[in-house]
Nucleic acid binder design. Structure first.
Lengths: 186, 186
DNA sequence: ACCTGAACACCGTTCAAGT
DNA sequence: ACCTGAACACCGTTCAAGT
């Protein structure tokens, strides 16, 4: 039995992934949790607090999941195929996007603490990809970081473009192109 | 002397690029134009009408600009460098994003006519890139379209990731990675 | 044709009041 | 500790009224 705070964050996650930070209404969120909107402020004083907590939770859970992927296989091709599949699954689930992809597009209007968490998510992802690349090829840490940045950006963009066309095959086509060109190791 | 309709659209463009569709307020927009918010409804009956007109204008102006790039040089490497530079310049101008990148992230909550225009923008871009690729290499039209999709997605993602980190070098690093791997022809 | 003030149901936020 | 109703200044939208 999850406590109310967790229930609020879980409901907020799918709303923000679908509608963005600005599309998240305390009244709608409260309705889906079964309390009044004023009650949410008891757990999260402001919308910024809720947003920052939401991204922090999402980020640490992603870090754990990525660690598990690396533990299952040290092979870069295998790891990055699972990584890309994570982006794909979010699309397959109601044409949603990565939380931090949505928030990146809204970046200018986000409260400062939310910005910081979103930026940290990107850094976490790039670091993980760079480690995966380094374990399967001889790269300087700078080279690994550059390629990791390109891979993260490319997959984020494939998700964004596919969502924009409401067509998951756009994601598959782009990801295949990344592998063919060698941007993502196979 | 631009007419009021043009002034409204020009002001709306920079607001939406910075704050997104949901961040666009008729009251703020009216204030920056120097009229009352109710007056905007005289030109655009609803926010959806304004949004659709905004994207349509942006799209046709992009199509013209891309045509001009192709007219200046038939070389794919040159064309795509100018193309990537367009994404870069938007970032350099106050960390803004392509209008349709921002709207893609908000896709689920957009009114139907706005969705249609945003999707058409992606198609226009992919078609242009595919034509550029075809003119410098022997590719089947399917291959050209697939690679064009990957290139468009990758550059969109580079812009999104750079904005998210509020760091334009993220864009440069990703774009360089796309060229090194051969995803984007040099 | 172009603009406006006033009204409507929404939004995040605050707060005094309840249990 | 947890929740609520009522109030505040916001939002898009409508409309009768002005020029």
């Amino acid at each position: 039995m999850a406590d109310t705070k967790d229930t609020i964050l879980a409901a907020a996650l799918s709303i923000v992934q679908a509608r963005g930070y600005n599309g998240l209404s305390f009244r709608d969120l409260a309705k889906s949790v079964g309390i009044k909107s004023a009650s949410i402020h008891h757990y999260f004083p402001s919308k910024a607090d809720l947003g920052a907590a939401l991204v922090r939770r999402y980020r640490t859970s992603a870090v754990d999941a990525l660690q598990a992927v690396r533990d299952r296989s040290p092979n870069a091709g295998v790891c990055l195929r699972e990584y890309a599949d994570g982006f794909r699954q979010t699309l397959a689930d109601s044409n949603r996007m990565c939380l931090c992809g949505v928030l990146g597009a809204e970046y200018d209007e986000l409260p400062e603490p939310v910005k910081a968490e979103v930026a940290a998510f990107v850094d976490d992802n790039v670091t993980w990809i760079a480690n995966v690349l380094s374990s399967s090829a001889t790269l300087s840490s700078k080279e690994a970081c550059s390629q990791a940045t390109a891979i993260y950006a490319a997959l984020s963009g494939a998700q964004l473009a596919a969502r924009t066309r409401a067509d998951i095959t756009v994601f598959d086509t782009a990801a295949e192109g990344y592998r063919c060109s060698g941007l993502i190791p196979q």
